[in-house]
Nucleic acid binder design. Structure first.
Length: 430
RNA sequence: GUGCCUAUAGUGUAACGGUUAGCACUAGAGUUUGUGGAACUCUCAGUCUGGGUUCAAAUCCCAGUAGGCACCCCA
């Protein structure tokens, strides 16, 4: 083996992907725990689908012609020749699982929550990464309007419990196959009438995805959109009824909503209800979308179900929440922050120190330590630096007689405790 | 994919195109015989990568890469 390395290259994480360490990790876990708990109360059950799926699962559901598929999906070809993709969202995989596992046979609807990393190959910026985390909820197997409201309410509750205080729901309906095609025709002809004042970028969209012109940020287009035909006034009677019911449920739960006539979704599987929950920053007034979702009654069939499978779902962007100034810093329940610092001194003590730590572990007493050090002063100084309330000092003498010194860092008082009495003593003191 | 800004030890910073790239913190080792935020000594460690201009580049130019911000899009 020739070692002809010209220069060693610094290995780094992949662009847009990052390490999540210590406190930040706990914040993610804390959020997930809280979100799960709330989802369980509302009747959701857990599901975890693979991070990698056949590429078709996403191309046939999210839709070719959307940016997510055309530009942002991580695809790979295996040595066996399979075309796979890292999931860019949770919903398609969950629907695939529903169909594959014959969940139509279960009492409907089935309600799932799922969380974990998803991947999109996009340029990173604030609150946006190539690997990011979503908490996702889906209600599959029913088209009842109360389920739209349920999903919104659950997501709303999760965001509130995570510390958000300026939330609002933006909602719209984009109709179903009965009414949508007629509406789109009318919309397209409206834009064609105004084609001369339409910015180039939106002329392009007219060909690929005319609905998206509605939420264009071009000034000219916003002006034109003032008089564009509205999706709501073109809904067929059943869609209209469905939408009206959803709003009634929201009113009853006292969730403030506003109808956003220009709200459309980038994914092509959506039907009827589309939703975003936004948080407005108190200082800057900037609105940040924390959560988005909607109804997707045709997705099941696109993924190979023989019958239509009505469903509604919502995804919460966790990275943005955890990074927000208002985030409640939920910490996971399993984590106990150590209050006691373990100090050992001398060879015999060092030998036995792992046994003492194990006694404490069995008694569910978390500790911090630096057993690699020898010097008492240095260890005490570290305990002080870490803000520990107590120290256990285990020295030569203590090792011989099977005891420890228990020291209160605040007033420097200390007491010698026999090892068998230690747990009892600590529980009394702390 | 596009545009603008940025890049010096682990972190924060300094160096008119001209000595051996300086300082602080952090980290590690040690000293003070088993009791506190300390002191002292020592050590590790840097100009993102690749080209170019120049007698001379951390410094100027180009490209790449990464980061930030915005756009596209989206959570």
């Amino acid at each position: 083996m020739e070692n002809k390395k010209p220069k060693k290259r610094q290995l780094t994480s992949v662009k847009g992907m990052r390490d999540i360490i210590d406190d930040q990790y706990y914040q993610f876990q804390g959020f997930f725990e809280k979100a799960q708990e709330i989802a369980l109360y509302y009747g959701f059950k857990p599901i975890e689908t693979p991070i990698v799926e056949h590429e078709d699962v996403f191309t046939s559901s999210i839709g070719i012609g959307t940016d997510i598929i055309d530009k942002e999906m991580y695809t790979l070809k295996t040595k066996g020749g399979d075309h796979l993709a890292l999931r860019p969202e949770h919903t398609a995989g969950i629907m695939r699982s529903y169909i594959e596992n014959g969940m139509q046979a279960l009492p409907q609807p089935v309600m799932f929550y799922s969380y974990g990393p998803v991947f999109r190959h996009d340029n990173p910026q604030k609150g946006r990464y190539r690997q990011f985390w979503q908490f996702d909820m889906d209600v599959i197997g029913s088209d009842k309007s109360i389920l739209d409201a349920l999903v919104i309410k659950t997501a709303w509750t999760i965001l509130s419990e995570a510390g958000a205080t300026n939330l609002s729901v933006e909602i719209n309906s984009i109709g179903d196959k009965e009414c949508r095609s007629g509406y789109i025709k009318e919309l397209v002809s409206y834009y064609k009438k105004n084609i001369n004042s339409l910015p180039a970028i939106d002329r392009e969209r007219l060909k690929t995805n005319p609905l998206r012109i509605l939420d264009s940020k071009e000034e000219k287009t916003i002006e034109i959109n003032q008089n564009a035909p509205e999706t709501l006034s073109h809904l067929c009677p059943s869609c209209k009824k469905h939408f009206k019911e959803v709003l009634e449920y929201l009113e009853e739960t006292e969730i403030p909503y506003s109808i956003n006539k220009c709200l459309v979704r980038g994914l092509s599987y959506y039907t009827r209800t589309v939703i975003e929950i936004v948080e407005e920053d108190k200082e800057t007034g900037k609105k940040m979308t924390m959560t988005a979702g909607g109804r997707y009654d045709y997705l099941g069939k696109q993924l190979g179900s023989k019958k239509d499978v009505a469903a509604v779902g919502i995804s919460i962007g966790v990275d943005r929440i955890v990074e927000s100034s208002w985030f409640a810093k939920l910490s996971p329940r399993i984590i106990k922050k150590p209050k006691i610092y373990f100090i050992q001194l001398g060879f015999d003590a060092k030998l036995k120190s792992l046994n003492v730590i194990e006694i404490l572990r069995k008694g569910k007493i978390p500790i911090a330590q630096s057993i690699s050090k020898d010097n008492l002063g240095a260890q005490l100084a570290t305990a002080e630096k870490l803000g520990m309330g107590y120290a256990i000092i285990f020295g030569q003498k203590e090792a011989l007689e099977g005891s420890v010194i228990f020291r209160d860092m605040s007033n420097r008082s200390q007491e010698t405790i026999k090892l068998p009495k230690l747990l009892e003593y600590i529980k009394k003191i702390t």
